[in-house]
Amino acid sequence: MRLASALLGLFRLLVYVFLLAPIVVVVLASLNAGNFLTFPPQGLSLRWFFTFLENEVFLRAIGFSVVLGLAATAASLVIGTMAALYYVRHAKRRAESVRIAILMPLILPEILTAIALLFFFYEVGVGTEYYIALFTGHVLITLPFVFLNVVTSLQGMDEMCELAARSLGAKRFTAFRRITLPLAKPGMINGALFAFIISFDTFGISYMLKGTGSAPLPIQLFDYLRFNFTPEAAAVSTVSIILTLAAVILADRFFGLKVQRF
C-alpha cells in the first residue's frame, strides 16, 4: 500500500515536470551562448536577446500581434458580453442552442474554420486584404472565451439585484450601468485576458488568413523555426512567454483575477 502511494506520488511529480519541461527548456535555451541549440549549453549569455532586439522582423511581428490582439479582444468583449447577457437573461428555452452556437468556433477544428474563412473572403472579393479576414478570424475564436467568463460572472449574480435597483427608482439603463455592469466586470476582465492570450498565441487562423505584409508572431516564429536552429528563436519565445505572463500579472495586479472554470 505504501509502495503504491509512493509510486503514485512519483508519477504525479513526473507529470508536473512533463508539463513544465518544454517551457523551462525554451527559456534555458535562450540563454545559450553558443551558435546552435546544443546541450549542455556552451555558457550563459544574453547575446541572442540582443540579436532579437536588432531583428526588425520579430519586433514588428510582436507589435503586430499586440495590436491585433487588442483590437480582436475589444470587439469580442463587446459582442461576447452582449451575447452573455442575452444568454443569461433572455434566451430562456433557446439558451442551450445559443450557448452551443457561440461555442462553435471553439468546438470546430480551428484549421477548418481558418480554411472556410479563407475561401469565403476570397469568394466575396476581399481576400486577405487590409487584415479584415485575419481580424474577423481572431474575433471568432476569442468570442467563446469572453462569453464563457461573462456568463460565469452573471450566473453568480442575483438576478433580483437589477429589479431591486428598478424598485428603488433606477431607470432600465441606470440599473444596467450601476448594478449589472459592475457585477459582470470580473468576468469581462477574465474574458478579455483569455481573449488576448488566445489571439496572441493562436496559429491556424493566423497562418491561413495572414496574407501579405505583417504577420503575427507565432507565424513569424514558425516560419523561422522551419529553417533555422539558432537560439534566437528561443529568445523570441522567451519574450513571448514573458509578455503573456506580464499580461496575466498586470491584470491580476489591477483587477484581481479569479480562477474560473471552463
Binding site: I23, F200, D201, F203, P218, L225, S237, T244
Partner: peptide, 9 residues
Amino acid sequence: VGIVVRSYG
C-alpha cells in the same frame, strides 16, 4: 504559452 513555443520546446 503559444502552441508554436510549446512545440518548439
